[in-house]
Amino acid sequence: MSQGNRAPFVVAHRGASAALPEHTLAAYELALEEGADGVECDVRLTRDGHLVCVHDRTVDRTSSGTGLVSEMTLEELRALDFGGDGEPVPVLTLSELIELVLDWRSRPTKLFIETKHPVRYGGLVENKLLAELQRFGIATPASADHSRAVVMSFAALAVWRIRRAAPLLPTVLLGESSRYLGGGAATTVGATAVGPSVKTLRDHPDLVDKAAAAGRATYCWTVDDPADVALCSDLGVNWIATNHPGRTKAMLSS
């Protein structure tokens, strides 16, 4: 996940989600068109074992329906509208997003996948995710720098599962706690990067240097304010997640 001496890489948080409904194919297509270096998604398992890109435990906020993702089948989810305006927009599966990213030929783009915890299916989420990455041939990269996928979680155990099963896949241990970011849990589970929120980074700007000293990259979320973009750039953050990928890319290149 290293970047050398350059501005932070820009990750589209749930796609270009300030402009279009989050976790929709259109939001990710726009992010790629705007030049995002990476795209981020959250994944959950449906009742019949499919990985879908939904942040919340329920579909209430982001769709026309109600209920827990884990209690619904993929067919039931596909009957809902996740667009909220105009033509109905179906739920996005992880496989559909992977296909989009890998088929985007203008440049290689990384896919940052966050597994949600605690969840009904526990470690099955990571097992299904690894199987999906294997199916697309991106589960065993030649090196972390050249990996097309990065797996993230707030749960240290989830990161440990990935590191144990696929040691070459880069991982991010997300978290507000400075005890995670200062070494502790990140060292224990072997995370290749730490993921503070931008608020945590404002309060503890030394985290970037501490992570670098431990050989870890830094992924900061969710960076929308221009002052925060500048802060991340000044501190040497490697990857910043933003709802405004095009605008953020422009700010960093100006």
Rank of each mutant, 00 (worst) to 15 (best):
S2P: 00
S2L: 00
Q3V: 02
G4Q: 08
G4H: 02
N5Y: 06
N5T: 12
F9R: 11
V11N: 08
H13E: 04
R14E: 06
S17W: 09
A19S: 15
T24E: 09
L25V: 07
A26L: 14
A27H: 12
Y28E: 02
E29G: 03
L30S: 11
E33V: 06
G35K: 03
D37G: 00
G38M: 05
R44C: 00
T46I: 03
R47G: 00
G49H: 08
G49A: 05
L51D: 11
L51W: 11
C53G: 05
T66R: 14
T66D: 14
G67D: 08
L68C: 06
V69S: 04
E71L: 05
M72Y: 08
E75L: 04
L77S: 07
L77V: 03
D81I: 04
G83V: 11
D85E: 15
V89Y: 08
P90S: 11
L92W: 10
T93K: 09
T93F: 06
L94S: 00
S95N: 13
E99Q: 09
L100A: 12
D103M: 01
R105T: 11
R107C: 01
K110L: 00
K110E: 01
E114K: 00
T115G: 01
H117F: 14
P118Q: 15
P118K: 14
P118E: 15
G123H: 15
G123I: 06
E126L: 02
N127M: 02
N127C: 01
L129N: 08
E132G: 01
E132L: 03
L133M: 09
A139V: 11
A139Q: 12
P141C: 15
A144H: 08
H146T: 12
S147R: 08
S147E: 06
A156L: 10
L157K: 09
A158H: 09
A158Q: 12
R161N: 11
I162G: 04
R164W: 12
L169F: 09
P170K: 07
T171N: 03
L173Q: 13
L174C: 09
S177T: 15
S178I: 14
Y180S: 09
Y180M: 12
G183N: 13
A185G: 13
A185P: 11
T187W: 14
T187M: 11
A191C: 06
R202Y: 14
H204S: 11
K210G: 09
A211W: 10
C220T: 13
W221P: 00
W221Q: 00
V223L: 00
A227R: 14
D228F: 01
V229W: 05
L235V: 13
V237A: 04
I240M: 13
A241T: 13
A241E: 04
H244P: 00
P245L: 01
R247L: 04
L252V: 06
S254F: 04
